[in-house]
């Protein structure tokens, strides 16, 4: 039984990506766009009580719920969930991606980007572009925690060892309002929706995969898939106060076809997901 992605699993991923993929494997891209169905509440202003010269340049707002142009819903995590011991083919193009660093920067006393995914083969570079010191406190469930001090202009590489079921927080103890979300996974098939709500996952092996949808404010989003006019369409089921959303009940199976799978440019997420907290 493999509870977490241990070294063995990591090694498997390595093997698979190093040419172990079956010849003739076909790939498809998954893309779409989340929108908020309703009017977003005004963002909450943060109490910036320190290092005013750097942190207080502009008013700072909570990024718990970020809605962009055309009501695009940012920071929705969408990622493949593997069964225990399940392997997934890795497209050769990801070989280069594995060597790319992921960056979590400190800019004007907030984390950039606010939410991201990291493949375990990648390094997360904790960077500080500010002229003031920061620290990055990370306590991933069941994985090694860290809390390095990062001087002005400094950087610290960090390696996650375990795949997580849910995004984990990164905080700065010096500036208590700072918070980011990072999801370490043992495969690269994951995305976070951008400022306009759009997302794209490249080169997913053709076939059916289980996807999880998650947003920091709402928790799990209940995905649903449909075929409409021969096309795959993703939707997010509306939620009421009484709905119990569990991990399993919120997962959605998407059948990826060769080529581009655009699952909808207006995937509506009801406002009720973000109320009553």
């Amino acid at each position: 039984m493999l509870r977490h992605c241990t070294l063995i699993c990591l090694a498997t991923v390595l093997l698979l990506s190093a040419g172990g993929t079956a010849r003739g494997q076909k790939w498809g891209d998954l893309k779409g766009r989340f929108v908020l169905d309703g009017t977003a509440p005004p963002p909450v202003e943060l109490d910036v009580n320190k290092d005013q010269e750097v942190c207080g340049k502009e008013k700072m707002f909570s990024e718990e719920l970020v809605v962009g142009d055309g009501n695009g819903l940012a920071n929705v995590f969408i990622y493949v969930v593997l069964e225990r011991n399940q392997k997934i083919a890795i497209h050769p193009d990801y070989e280069a991606v594995a060597k790319e660093e992921r960056v979590l920067d400190n800019v004007n006393c907030h984390f950039v980007p606010h939410a991201q995914t990291v493949w375990l083969r990648q390094t997360l570079l904790l960077k500080n572009s500010d002229p003031v010191a920061h620290n990055s406190k990370i306590d991933p469930l069941g994985d090694t925690p860290t809390n390095p001090l990062i001087p002005a202009g400094g950087q610290v590489p960090w390696q996650f060892k375990k795949s997580q079921g849910l995004p984990q927080t990164v905080t700065c103890s010096i500036h208590g309002w700072m918070k980011a979300w990072v999801l370490p996974l043992d495969h690269p098939y994951a995305a976070v929706s951008g400022p306009d709500g759009s997302f794209e996952i490249k080169n997913v092996p053709v076939g059916e995969h289980t996807f999880q949808l998650w947003h920091e404010r709402s928790g799990y989003l209940m995905g649903a898939a449909q075929q409409k006019d021969g096309k795959l369409v993703l939707s997010v089921k509306p939620k009421t106060a009484a709905t119990k959303v569990t991990k399993k009940s919120s997962q959605v199976k998407l059948k990826i076809a060769e080529g581009v799978n655009d699952v909808g440019q207006e995937i509506k997420v009801s406002l009720s997901y973000f109320e009553g907290r």
Partner: peptide, 11 residues
């Protein structure tokens, strides 16, 4: 919350 100032793996 007190951070460390020493080296960590890779830095």
């Amino acid at each position: 919350p007190m951070p460390g100032a020493g080296p960590s793996p890779g830095r």
